[in-house]
Design a protein around this nucleic acid. Structure first.
Lengths: 164, 164
DNA sequence: GTAAAGTGGTTTGATGCCAAACTAATTGGT
DNA sequence: ACCAATTAGTTTGGCATCAAACCACTTTAC
Protein backbone atom coordinates (compact mmCIF):
# COMPACT_ATOMS: atom_id res chain seq x y z
CA UNK A 1 0.00 0.00 0.00
CA UNK A 2 1.01 3.56 -0.65
CA UNK A 3 4.20 3.25 -2.57
CA UNK A 4 5.63 6.74 -2.67
CA UNK A 5 6.52 6.79 -6.35
CA UNK A 6 3.92 7.24 -9.04
CA UNK A 7 3.33 3.55 -9.73
CA UNK A 8 0.33 1.83 -8.28
CA UNK A 9 -1.23 -1.45 -9.27
CA UNK A 10 -4.65 -1.12 -10.82
CA UNK A 11 -7.36 -2.06 -8.41
CA UNK A 12 -9.37 -5.30 -8.35
CA UNK A 13 -9.06 -7.61 -11.30
CA UNK A 14 -12.55 -7.01 -12.56
CA UNK A 15 -11.32 -7.45 -16.10
CA UNK A 16 -8.28 -9.25 -17.28
CA UNK A 17 -5.61 -7.50 -19.26
CA UNK A 18 -6.17 -3.89 -18.28
CA UNK A 19 -6.31 -4.69 -14.63
CA UNK A 20 -3.00 -6.51 -14.53
CA UNK A 21 -0.85 -3.67 -15.80
CA UNK A 22 0.50 -1.03 -13.55
CA UNK A 23 -0.67 2.51 -14.08
CA UNK A 24 1.53 5.54 -13.64
CA UNK A 25 -0.44 8.10 -11.67
CA UNK A 26 2.32 10.66 -11.80
CA UNK A 27 1.78 13.51 -9.38
CA UNK A 28 -1.78 12.35 -8.76
CA UNK A 29 -0.45 9.45 -6.72
CA UNK A 30 0.56 11.78 -3.91
CA UNK A 31 -2.11 14.38 -4.10
CA UNK A 32 -4.69 14.60 -1.40
CA UNK A 33 -7.38 15.93 -3.72
CA UNK A 34 -7.19 13.05 -6.17
CA UNK A 35 -7.03 10.37 -3.52
CA UNK A 36 -9.87 11.97 -1.63
CA UNK A 37 -11.97 11.83 -4.75
CA UNK A 38 -11.06 8.22 -5.48
CA UNK A 39 -11.78 7.11 -1.93
CA UNK A 40 -15.07 8.92 -1.76
CA UNK A 41 -16.31 7.93 -5.19
CA UNK A 42 -15.58 4.26 -4.67
CA UNK A 43 -17.03 4.37 -1.18
CA UNK A 44 -20.13 6.05 -2.45
CA UNK A 45 -20.53 3.46 -5.18
CA UNK A 46 -20.26 0.67 -2.62
CA UNK A 47 -22.83 2.41 -0.46
CA UNK A 48 -25.17 2.81 -3.41
CA UNK A 49 -24.96 -0.86 -4.27
CA UNK A 50 -25.75 -1.74 -0.66
CA UNK A 51 -28.71 0.63 -0.58
CA UNK A 52 -29.98 -0.59 -3.89
CA UNK A 53 -30.77 -3.87 -2.16
CA UNK A 54 -33.27 -2.15 0.11
CA UNK A 55 -34.54 0.07 -2.69
CA UNK A 56 -33.24 3.32 -1.30
CA UNK A 57 -30.59 5.86 -2.20
CA UNK A 58 -27.76 7.22 -0.06
CA UNK A 59 -28.89 10.81 -0.38
CA UNK A 60 -32.18 10.01 1.28
CA UNK A 61 -30.44 8.64 4.33
CA UNK A 62 -28.53 11.75 5.35
CA UNK A 63 -31.57 13.88 4.63
CA UNK A 64 -33.86 11.75 6.75
CA UNK A 65 -31.36 11.56 9.60
CA UNK A 66 -30.90 15.30 9.68
CA UNK A 67 -34.65 15.94 9.67
CA UNK A 68 -35.10 13.36 12.42
CA UNK A 69 -32.44 14.97 14.56
CA UNK A 70 -33.54 18.53 13.89
CA UNK A 71 -37.32 18.57 13.85
CA UNK A 72 -38.79 21.59 12.14
CA UNK A 73 -35.61 22.33 10.21
CA UNK A 74 -35.96 24.41 7.05
CA UNK A 75 -34.86 23.27 3.62
CA UNK A 76 -32.13 25.86 3.40
CA UNK A 77 -30.66 24.89 6.76
CA UNK A 78 -30.88 21.28 5.65
CA UNK A 79 -29.02 22.05 2.46
CA UNK A 80 -26.15 23.65 4.33
CA UNK A 81 -26.07 20.83 6.83
CA UNK A 82 -25.80 18.23 4.13
CA UNK A 83 -23.39 20.20 1.97
CA UNK A 84 -25.70 20.40 -1.02
CA UNK A 85 -27.24 23.30 -2.86
CA UNK A 86 -30.76 24.13 -1.75
CA UNK A 87 -32.03 23.53 -5.27
CA UNK A 88 -30.75 19.96 -5.10
CA UNK A 89 -32.92 19.41 -2.09
CA UNK A 90 -36.20 20.38 -3.69
CA UNK A 91 -36.78 17.08 -5.52
CA UNK A 92 -35.45 15.02 -2.63
CA UNK A 93 -37.83 16.55 -0.12
CA UNK A 94 -40.64 16.35 -2.65
CA UNK A 95 -40.02 12.63 -3.02
CA UNK A 96 -39.90 12.04 0.73
CA UNK A 97 -43.14 13.95 1.22
CA UNK A 98 -44.82 12.09 -1.61
CA UNK A 99 -43.86 8.80 -0.01
CA UNK A 100 -45.24 9.92 3.32
CA UNK A 101 -41.92 9.84 5.16
CA UNK A 102 -41.66 13.55 5.80
CA UNK A 103 -44.27 16.12 6.70
CA UNK A 104 -43.87 19.64 5.40
CA UNK A 105 -45.70 22.52 7.03
CA UNK A 106 -45.45 26.21 6.37
CA UNK A 107 -44.54 28.08 9.53
CA UNK A 108 -46.77 30.82 10.89
CA UNK A 109 -44.12 33.41 11.69
CA UNK A 110 -42.42 33.20 8.28
CA UNK A 111 -44.57 31.97 5.46
CA UNK A 112 -41.63 31.46 3.12
CA UNK A 113 -39.99 28.65 5.08
CA UNK A 114 -41.10 25.08 5.44
CA UNK A 115 -40.88 23.15 8.67
CA UNK A 116 -39.81 19.58 8.03
CA UNK A 117 -40.59 16.66 10.30
CA UNK A 118 -40.50 12.89 10.10
CA UNK A 119 -43.76 10.99 10.05
CA UNK A 120 -44.14 7.68 11.91
CA UNK A 121 -43.42 5.94 8.62
CA UNK A 122 -40.40 8.14 8.14
CA UNK A 123 -39.00 7.07 11.48
CA UNK A 124 -39.52 3.44 10.64
CA UNK A 125 -37.83 3.77 7.27
CA UNK A 126 -34.97 5.71 8.83
CA UNK A 127 -34.40 2.88 11.28
CA UNK A 128 -34.08 0.40 8.43
CA UNK A 129 -31.78 2.69 6.50
CA UNK A 130 -29.65 3.28 9.57
CA UNK A 131 -29.09 -0.45 10.03
CA UNK A 132 -27.92 -0.63 6.43
CA UNK A 133 -25.67 2.40 6.81
CA UNK A 134 -24.13 0.97 9.98
CA UNK A 135 -23.09 -2.09 8.03
CA UNK A 136 -21.35 0.11 5.50
CA UNK A 137 -19.72 2.11 8.25
CA UNK A 138 -18.37 -1.06 9.84
CA UNK A 139 -16.69 -1.90 6.55
CA UNK A 140 -15.01 1.48 6.50
CA UNK A 141 -13.92 1.22 10.11
CA UNK A 142 -12.37 -2.15 9.47
CA UNK A 143 -10.31 -0.59 6.70
CA UNK A 144 -9.24 2.51 8.58
CA UNK A 145 -8.62 0.66 11.82
CA UNK A 146 -9.28 1.80 15.39
CA UNK A 147 -5.87 3.35 15.89
CA UNK A 148 -6.22 6.04 13.21
CA UNK A 149 -9.97 6.45 13.22
CA UNK A 150 -10.28 9.54 15.42
CA UNK A 151 -7.48 11.45 13.75
CA UNK A 152 -8.70 10.56 10.30
CA UNK A 153 -12.20 11.77 11.11
CA UNK A 154 -10.83 14.96 12.57
CA UNK A 155 -8.91 15.70 9.41
CA UNK A 156 -11.94 15.10 7.21
CA UNK A 157 -13.92 17.55 9.33
CA UNK A 158 -11.13 20.04 9.22
CA UNK A 159 -11.06 19.87 5.43
CA UNK A 160 -14.83 20.27 5.16
CA UNK A 161 -14.72 23.25 7.48
CA UNK A 162 -11.73 25.07 6.05
CA UNK A 163 -11.55 24.41 2.34
CA UNK A 164 -12.25 27.50 0.34
CA UNK B 1 -13.00 21.47 15.56
CA UNK B 2 -14.22 17.92 15.78
CA UNK B 3 -16.30 17.94 18.87
CA UNK B 4 -17.07 14.31 19.61
CA UNK B 5 -20.77 14.72 20.36
CA UNK B 6 -23.37 15.17 17.65
CA UNK B 7 -23.36 18.97 17.66
CA UNK B 8 -21.41 20.86 15.10
CA UNK B 9 -21.73 24.48 14.08
CA UNK B 10 -23.02 25.03 10.60
CA UNK B 11 -20.26 25.98 8.25
CA UNK B 12 -19.45 29.46 7.00
CA UNK B 13 -22.08 32.12 7.53
CA UNK B 14 -23.10 32.39 3.94
CA UNK B 15 -26.63 33.20 4.99
CA UNK B 16 -27.75 34.68 8.21
CA UNK B 17 -30.21 32.89 10.41
CA UNK B 18 -29.81 29.32 9.29
CA UNK B 19 -26.04 29.44 9.48
CA UNK B 20 -25.96 30.61 13.07
CA UNK B 21 -27.85 27.73 14.59
CA UNK B 22 -26.17 24.50 15.54
CA UNK B 23 -27.22 21.38 13.73
CA UNK B 24 -27.46 18.00 15.35
CA UNK B 25 -25.79 15.52 13.04
CA UNK B 26 -26.59 12.56 15.27
CA UNK B 27 -24.63 9.46 14.33
CA UNK B 28 -23.50 11.11 11.10
CA UNK B 29 -21.14 13.31 13.07
CA UNK B 30 -18.89 10.37 13.79
CA UNK B 31 -19.24 8.35 10.67
CA UNK B 32 -16.39 8.08 8.28
CA UNK B 33 -18.66 7.68 5.25
CA UNK B 34 -20.57 10.89 5.82
CA UNK B 35 -17.53 12.98 6.65
CA UNK B 36 -15.68 11.57 3.69
CA UNK B 37 -18.53 12.64 1.46
CA UNK B 38 -18.69 16.12 2.97
CA UNK B 39 -14.95 16.68 2.70
CA UNK B 40 -14.78 15.47 -0.86
CA UNK B 41 -17.86 17.26 -2.10
CA UNK B 42 -16.77 20.59 -0.67
CA UNK B 43 -13.22 20.09 -1.89
CA UNK B 44 -14.46 19.23 -5.34
CA UNK B 45 -16.64 22.33 -5.42
CA UNK B 46 -13.68 24.48 -4.47
CA UNK B 47 -11.62 22.83 -7.18
CA UNK B 48 -14.39 23.40 -9.72
CA UNK B 49 -14.59 27.08 -8.88
CA UNK B 50 -10.84 27.37 -9.29
CA UNK B 51 -10.92 25.56 -12.61
CA UNK B 52 -13.82 27.60 -13.85
CA UNK B 53 -11.48 30.55 -13.92
CA UNK B 54 -9.34 28.87 -16.55
CA UNK B 55 -12.38 27.45 -18.35
CA UNK B 56 -11.70 23.83 -17.59
CA UNK B 57 -13.29 21.11 -15.49
CA UNK B 58 -11.65 18.91 -12.86
CA UNK B 59 -12.53 15.67 -14.60
CA UNK B 60 -10.46 16.68 -17.60
CA UNK B 61 -7.38 17.17 -15.48
CA UNK B 62 -7.10 13.65 -14.11
CA UNK B 63 -7.90 12.21 -17.50
CA UNK B 64 -5.26 14.26 -19.25
CA UNK B 65 -2.65 13.49 -16.61
CA UNK B 66 -3.26 9.77 -16.83
CA UNK B 67 -3.06 9.79 -20.62
CA UNK B 68 0.12 11.83 -20.45
CA UNK B 69 1.71 9.44 -18.01
CA UNK B 70 0.52 6.31 -19.77
CA UNK B 71 0.82 6.89 -23.50
CA UNK B 72 -1.29 4.53 -25.56
CA UNK B 73 -3.58 3.66 -22.66
CA UNK B 74 -7.00 2.30 -23.56
CA UNK B 75 -10.26 3.89 -22.46
CA UNK B 76 -11.18 0.96 -20.25
CA UNK B 77 -7.84 1.01 -18.45
CA UNK B 78 -8.28 4.75 -18.08
CA UNK B 79 -11.70 4.31 -16.59
CA UNK B 80 -10.42 1.93 -13.94
CA UNK B 81 -7.46 4.16 -13.22
CA UNK B 82 -9.68 7.15 -12.64
CA UNK B 83 -12.36 5.28 -10.75
CA UNK B 84 -15.10 6.02 -13.24
CA UNK B 85 -17.30 3.82 -15.36
CA UNK B 86 -16.06 3.37 -18.89
CA UNK B 87 -19.28 4.82 -20.23
CA UNK B 88 -18.60 8.06 -18.36
CA UNK B 89 -15.37 8.37 -20.19
CA UNK B 90 -16.77 8.26 -23.69
CA UNK B 91 -17.96 11.88 -23.80
CA UNK B 92 -14.89 13.11 -21.93
CA UNK B 93 -12.46 11.57 -24.40
CA UNK B 94 -14.64 12.70 -27.27
CA UNK B 95 -14.42 16.26 -26.01
CA UNK B 96 -10.65 16.10 -25.57
CA UNK B 97 -10.22 14.72 -29.06
CA UNK B 98 -12.54 17.30 -30.56
CA UNK B 99 -10.48 20.04 -28.93
CA UNK B 100 -7.30 18.56 -30.28
CA UNK B 101 -5.75 17.74 -26.91
CA UNK B 102 -5.80 14.00 -27.30
CA UNK B 103 -5.15 11.78 -30.26
CA UNK B 104 -7.08 8.54 -30.58
CA UNK B 105 -5.82 5.74 -32.80
CA UNK B 106 -7.11 2.24 -33.25
CA UNK B 107 -4.43 -0.32 -32.49
CA UNK B 108 -3.38 -2.88 -35.04
CA UNK B 109 -3.26 -5.93 -32.82
CA UNK B 110 -6.71 -5.41 -31.33
CA UNK B 111 -9.04 -3.35 -33.42
CA UNK B 112 -11.52 -2.87 -30.60
CA UNK B 113 -9.29 -0.76 -28.40
CA UNK B 114 -8.23 2.81 -28.84
CA UNK B 115 -4.76 4.03 -28.08
CA UNK B 116 -4.84 7.44 -26.42
CA UNK B 117 -2.04 9.96 -26.55
CA UNK B 118 -1.57 13.62 -25.80
CA UNK B 119 -1.00 16.02 -28.65
CA UNK B 120 1.42 18.91 -28.32
CA UNK B 121 -1.55 21.13 -27.49
CA UNK B 122 -2.68 18.58 -24.93
CA UNK B 123 0.68 18.76 -23.19
CA UNK B 124 0.54 22.51 -23.10
CA UNK B 125 -2.97 22.56 -21.68
CA UNK B 126 -2.04 19.92 -19.14
CA UNK B 127 0.81 22.08 -17.94
CA UNK B 128 -1.57 24.97 -17.34
CA UNK B 129 -4.06 22.74 -15.58
CA UNK B 130 -1.35 21.23 -13.44
CA UNK B 131 -0.29 24.63 -12.19
CA UNK B 132 -3.87 25.32 -11.19
CA UNK B 133 -4.25 21.94 -9.52
CA UNK B 134 -1.05 22.46 -7.56
CA UNK B 135 -2.52 25.62 -6.11
CA UNK B 136 -5.53 23.67 -4.93
CA UNK B 137 -3.34 20.93 -3.57
CA UNK B 138 -1.36 23.46 -1.55
CA UNK B 139 -4.60 24.61 0.06
CA UNK B 140 -5.39 21.06 1.08
CA UNK B 141 -1.91 20.45 2.41
CA UNK B 142 -2.08 23.54 4.53
CA UNK B 143 -5.28 22.20 6.10
CA UNK B 144 -4.08 18.66 6.68
CA UNK B 145 -0.65 19.69 7.85
CA UNK B 146 2.72 18.07 7.18
CA UNK B 147 2.63 15.87 10.25
CA UNK B 148 -0.43 13.84 9.24
CA UNK B 149 -0.14 14.09 5.50
CA UNK B 150 1.49 10.75 4.72
CA UNK B 151 -0.72 8.73 7.01
CA UNK B 152 -3.84 10.47 5.77
CA UNK B 153 -2.94 9.76 2.18
CA UNK B 154 -2.19 6.16 3.00
CA UNK B 155 -5.61 5.71 4.56
CA UNK B 156 -7.37 7.22 1.57
CA UNK B 157 -5.54 4.82 -0.71
CA UNK B 158 -6.35 1.93 1.55
CA UNK B 159 -10.03 2.81 1.43
CA UNK B 160 -10.00 3.13 -2.35
CA UNK B 161 -8.26 -0.21 -2.69
CA UNK B 162 -10.26 -2.22 -0.19
CA UNK B 163 -13.78 -0.91 -0.10
CA UNK B 164 -16.21 -3.42 -1.54
C1' DG C 1 -12.61 -24.19 -37.79
C1' DT C 2 -16.58 -22.82 -35.72
C1' DA C 3 -19.61 -21.57 -31.96
C1' DA C 4 -19.77 -19.52 -27.40
C1' DA C 5 -18.07 -16.55 -24.10
C1' DG C 6 -15.58 -12.47 -23.10
C1' DT C 7 -13.89 -7.67 -23.84
C1' DG C 8 -13.51 -2.56 -25.63
C1' DG C 9 -16.27 1.04 -26.61
C1' DT C 10 -20.82 3.51 -27.45
C1' DT C 11 -25.66 4.45 -26.61
C1' DT C 12 -29.58 5.20 -23.84
C1' DG C 13 -32.11 6.24 -19.68
C1' DA C 14 -32.06 7.64 -15.10
C1' DT C 15 -30.24 10.15 -11.10
C1' DG C 16 -27.92 13.75 -8.58
C1' DC C 17 -25.83 17.86 -8.52
C1' DC C 18 -24.89 22.96 -9.23
C1' DA C 19 -25.69 27.66 -10.79
C1' DA C 20 -28.52 31.24 -12.30
C1' DA C 21 -32.97 33.15 -12.91
C1' DC C 22 -37.25 33.48 -10.88
C1' DT C 23 -41.47 34.12 -7.36
C1' DA C 24 -43.19 35.14 -2.98
C1' DA C 25 -42.49 36.81 1.52
C1' DT C 26 -39.85 39.49 4.94
C1' DT C 27 -36.79 42.96 6.71
C1' DG C 28 -34.61 47.39 6.98
C1' DG C 29 -33.73 52.15 5.81
C1' DT C 30 -35.46 56.50 5.27
C1' DA D 1 -45.56 53.84 5.41
C1' DC D 2 -43.08 52.63 1.59
C1' DC D 3 -39.49 50.93 -1.44
C1' DA D 4 -35.06 48.43 -1.84
C1' DA D 5 -32.48 44.65 -0.43
C1' DT D 6 -32.56 40.09 1.41
C1' DT D 7 -34.17 35.43 2.06
C1' DA D 8 -36.86 30.66 1.27
C1' DG D 9 -37.93 27.79 -2.01
C1' DT D 10 -38.72 26.37 -7.07
C1' DT D 11 -37.65 26.07 -11.93
C1' DT D 12 -34.67 25.48 -15.68
C1' DG D 13 -30.56 24.14 -18.07
C1' DG D 14 -26.47 21.85 -18.15
C1' DC D 15 -23.10 18.45 -16.74
C1' DA D 16 -21.15 14.13 -14.64
C1' DT D 17 -22.09 9.87 -13.30
C1' DC D 18 -23.72 4.87 -13.34
C1' DA D 19 -26.00 0.79 -15.15
C1' DA D 20 -27.75 -1.97 -18.62
C1' DA D 21 -28.28 -2.96 -23.39
C1' DC D 22 -25.88 -3.10 -27.41
C1' DC D 23 -22.22 -3.76 -31.43
C1' DA D 24 -17.84 -5.13 -33.13
C1' DC D 25 -14.02 -7.74 -32.46
C1' DT D 26 -11.15 -11.38 -30.01
C1' DT D 27 -10.27 -15.39 -27.35
C1' DT D 28 -11.42 -19.86 -25.74
C1' DA D 29 -13.32 -24.43 -25.97
C1' DC D 30 -14.39 -28.08 -28.37
Amino acid sequence: MARSNGKTPVRRGRNGAAAIEAIDYGPLANWIGFNLRMAQELTFQAFSRLYQEIGESPGRFATLTLIGRNPGISQTALSYASGRDKSSLTPVVEDLVRRGLVERRRTSHDRRTYSLNLTADGKKTLAIMTRCARQHERNLERIVGPRDRARFLQLLKKIAAEIV
